[in-house]
Design a binder for these strands. Structure first.
Lengths: 190, 190
DNA sequence: ATCTCGACCATAAAACAATAATAGTCGAAA
DNA sequence: TTTCGACTATTATTGTTTTATGGTCGAGAT
């Protein structure tokens, strides 16, 4: 029954978010889901497997939110702005996924690596498409779309840092907008 | 005798670089310096103290290299390029300092935090000065110098990541130059 | 068949004790 | 002023026992 699986996943998601994969026990998940531990193994192969699915779910949520945000606006500039802001906004909410992307101790799980690559791929693809469209519409004049897309992801990576330490003195959204202003001016056709 | 202190520091620097602060013993340092362990305590208060001075020394080396690189060229654009490339090039060489900036397990040492802040301050100051000069010379037209400088540091922070995993497929220097091209275009007066 | 679980096992983690390493001190001496 | 051997108090390591936990199985419920 797919519905039960979902229930387990959403419970596990919360517990993982709070304690991480190591400090979360199968008994805990089972108890919270009001079922025997053995039952979990009827629906999932292992603890890793549950975690992997949680990560995957969160990853898809983020991708969906990003795609939605992009489609809601028209111009390439708006799309990039929407992308960056949406990414910032939702990434920290998806605790498990975020920790999968950043925590070193999760490196050795192959599914984590797979999910990371998958997202990087999506991110690069999406940004490249926007840049291409911008070029075609005559808004941008980006020579090397690949490099520029990579540059954007690098900048996004850098932005995660102030996001974590959440320095209240800095208004991240304003900051991002000013930063994008410069980037846009650099990419604009003239 | 200040010279002896220097000798101890430069020996400790090498050992710390290889084994980190925890796995380095005072006996080791003493033996390498061909002196009794107790003598170390004549020159330094503690092991932390030695490490702090090593960090401080490396931090100063980096600052000096950066200042040199900047002064060697004239235009603001050249200065920024020189800054970024010099930073990339030398940061990974200064092993102890680099690990102080990045390793979480060093967080609780107050001198590490102090050194981090100190460097961030230097970095922001230096970049801001270049941007100001660029504005005054009519090369740049940067509205908010503070935010732009912060943006540059964020981008630099993001660049550290591909630096660590050193993906051979990407030529970092070329990448940086292309990236700076866009940024310059965005900051240029027109 | 599909699903649930108690009882069970093997392994991994925690707790503990005993031992060894190590940071740091001190007084004597060069 | 500088050096260091001998010492101590702490911290880290190692080996051992105990506990916790991931995962299996077969019996029974639906």
């Amino acid at each position: 029954m797919e519905e039960k699986k979902e229930r387990i996943l959403s419970i596990a998601q919360k517990i993982f978010a709070r304690f991480g994969i190591n400090k979360t026990t199968m008994d805990e998940i089972a108890k919270m889901a009001r079922m025997g531990k053995a039952t979990l193994y009827y629906y999932f192969k292992s603890k890793e497997d549950i975690f992997a699915e949680v990560i995957h779910k969160e990853s898809n949520i983020l991708k969906q939110k990003l795609s939605e945000a992009i489609n809601k606006v028209k111009t390439p500039k708006e799309k990039i702005t929407a992308y960056v802001l949406t990414r910032m906004k939702h990434l920290k909410e998806l605790v498990n996924y975020y920790s999968a992307l950043t925590d070193d101790y999760l490196d050795h799980y192959s599914f984590v690596e797979k999910e990371r690559q998958n997202f990087t791929h999506y991110e690069m693809d999406t940004l490249k498409n926007i840049l291409f469209a911008g070029n075609n519409e005559g808004v941008f004049q980006v020579k090397d779309v690949d490099v520029t897309a990579r540059m954007l992801t690098i900048a996004l990576k850098g932005l995660e840092y102030p996001l974590i330490i959440e320095d209240k003195a800095v208004d991240i959204e304003t900051e991002i907008n000013l930063m994008l202003d410069i980037l846009f001016k650099g990419m604009e056709k003239r």
